[in-house]
Amino acid sequence: MLNSRTKLIQLTVTLTACAFLLVPMILSVMAGVTANYFQGISSGLTLKWVFRVWELYADSIFLSLWLAIACLISTLIIGLPAAYGLARHPGWLSRILEEFISLPLAVPGLALALALLQLYGSMKGFRISWTFILVGHVLYTLPFMVRSILAVLASMDLKTLEEGAASLGASPWQRFRDIVVPNAMPGILAGSLTVVTLSIGEFNLTWMLHTPYLKTLPVGLADSYASMRLEVASAYTLVFFVLIVPLLMAMQWASARAQRIAQ
């Protein structure tokens, strides 16, 4: 009796929490496909607003995707060797470096953006180019990539594995290619998905760095909320969900896998 009552309470709390999270989302998405929000669902369902969003903000969507890919490539190029170096030479210096790379996690995006603006704001060409936003995104996402790879690398005896490969005649580059990268792959995958998801969803820093011609997906979202009719803004949310939710799910899966291996 007591048991079933406890269960009932648990179920109620869980469902209430879910409703609390889901209802606004559903309402917002519904608003995006309703012909006229003020008349309600009776006015009929339509994809008109979604197409309108596409007309108005396709550039933002492509810019965001492009930025995410560029950001991923940059963090891979910087992060993989960095994580490898940190894993290969553990010590106080590596600890300090790791903390240093992780600093952008603790500093608010706005402060980071302000610092970038102060430093590079006067370089006109750079200031108005998409690479300026990229720099911000790389700074912000790099720690996720490095930590994710480092966790996997630290869980294996990298030094001995490399010595084993070396004794079989593998050069440093062959060792990196054949041993380090394949074994770090779960961490690389988890890190990559995190970086892409964060880059697509980043608003704080991007909002400070963007120019009217360079609106990313979340910046466009804010713009549509501020200046478009409610249905368009809601349809925008829908588009945003469609892009980000699969990425989020893939990220969950990849990091769970990386953690299993790191244990």
Binding site: T160, E163, G164, L168, I179, N183
Partner: peptide
């Protein structure tokens, strides 16, 4: 001569087999 050019076979205590 570096290890990769010495042509020695080595068996490690932990075996160091490549997990991948």
């Amino acid at each position: 001569l570096s290890v990769e050019r010495r042509k020695v076979g080595m068996v490690f205590q932990s075996y160091a087999l490549f997990p991948n």
